[in-house]
């Protein structure tokens, strides 16, 4: 194997065996795209969490009418809880390059942020960011998995 040259080294990213997902695959897989719901959860200290996922078309960061329906619920929740700050976590499916997908996930998070701001939510209460294709919810390489992975998690 030395024919390539001894003078090279290769740096590679080694994939850890398990990654922890904050939302289980089942909880999303069982959820039809059209029935995205907002479920305000109360914990012991009465913190309120927006817990919603909105989905996107391939290569797109436009909000669908279904997404807007879900986001209306988020606006309502945030208006009723003025101290609530939420993270908008953008994701992409595995197709395409990792860095472009990181940027695409960010555009999706920003699209959600822009909608919420235009509906009266202060930008300071929103933290848009992206994981690109690095945290898939559904692990297959097929249309179903991809549609579940192109998302913004609101939490």
């Amino acid at each position: 194997m030395n024919k390539f040259s001894n003078f090279y080294f290769i740096s590679i990213v080694f994939i850890a065996g398990c990654s922890s997902l904050q939302v289980t695959e089942e909880s999303i897989a069982n959820q039809d795209v059209s029935s995205v719901t907002i479920s305000p959860k109360s914990t012991a200290d009465k913190a309120v969490l927006a817990n919603a996922v909105v989905y996107f078309e391939y290569d797109s960061y436009s909000l669908t009418s279904k997404s807007i329906l879900a986001l209306k619920g988020v606006v309502k929740l945030m208006s009723g809880n003025p101290k609530l700050t939420i993270g908008l976590e953008g994701h992409a499916d595995e197709r395409g390059t990792r860095e472009y997908n990181l940027a695409l996930g960010q555009r999706r998070a920003e699209a959600v942020s822009t909608y919420l701001v235009s509906n009266g939510i202060n930008r300071k209460r929103l933290i848009p960011k992206s994981y690109g294709e690095e945290r898939p919810l559904s692990l297959g390489s097929n249309d179903y998995s991809w549609s579940k992975n192109r998302r913004v998690e609101i939490k």
């Binding site: 003078f7 290769i10 740096s11 590679i12 990213v13 080694f14 994939i15 990792r98």
Partner: peptide
């Protein structure tokens, strides 16, 4: 395990 994203070093 699995590997991805290789990058050659210089000489």
């Amino acid at each position: 395990g699995e590997v991805r994203e290789p990058a050659w070093s210089n000489f």
